[in-house]
Amino acid sequence: MRVRMKIRKGEEVKFISQLDLMRALERAIRRAELPVKFTEGFNPRPRISFTPALPVGMTSDAEYMDVEFAGELPLDRILARLNSCLPPGISVLKADTAEGKIPLSSVNRAIYTVVVDAGGDATPELLDKAIAELLARPEITVTKTSKGKVKNINISPLIYSIKITRVEGSRAELRMELAAGQEGNVTPPVVIKALLEYIPTITVCRMNRDELFLVREGKRNDPI
């Protein structure tokens, strides 16, 4: 049976990479003595797949994995056993069958909560203005370095919305809805970097991925 799980990555583990998280979950499954299926061949691997990588340094309430088990197991038992074996900061929020659900690789959108400090003399009003100006631009070019190559990309079409949801002194909580996944991906740190052009004193206090889903033909499809 193939089981889909929604996973939380908390403060304690926000600096671990996607690969580290995968390994930690694989080892937890072994500790929980859950009968996972392995790939055939010379170097057998557990049959587990994940949603696209979360940037390092960010917490998340919306990571997903599919695990293929040998035989049928009650979902609540899988959830309980796995949660009792996970290291601090990682937990399984939900488990359901993966049958009939969207493939994990198909997700294309994410919602984040980003708490920033405007810093210096900047006020939340100034931040609001800067966001409006940024969103009004047809082109927002940022440079990206991957594997030593510097690339210019336009992130404007990858930003769906940025809203200020709370203000406390010089701190503001932002809700960002951004493209995520294989078709196009932009992350909050990149958006913040673009905002620095307007307010160079912004610092990030906290980032969390709240939701991850697929939008197809204007309709939202959640992985679970």
Binding site: E12, F15, I16, A24, R27
Partner: peptide, 10 residues
């Protein structure tokens, strides 16, 4: 490699 400095391992 920030995980070198964070601890909290199982």
């Amino acid at each position: 490699k920030p995980t070198r400095y964070t601890g909290n391992e199982l």
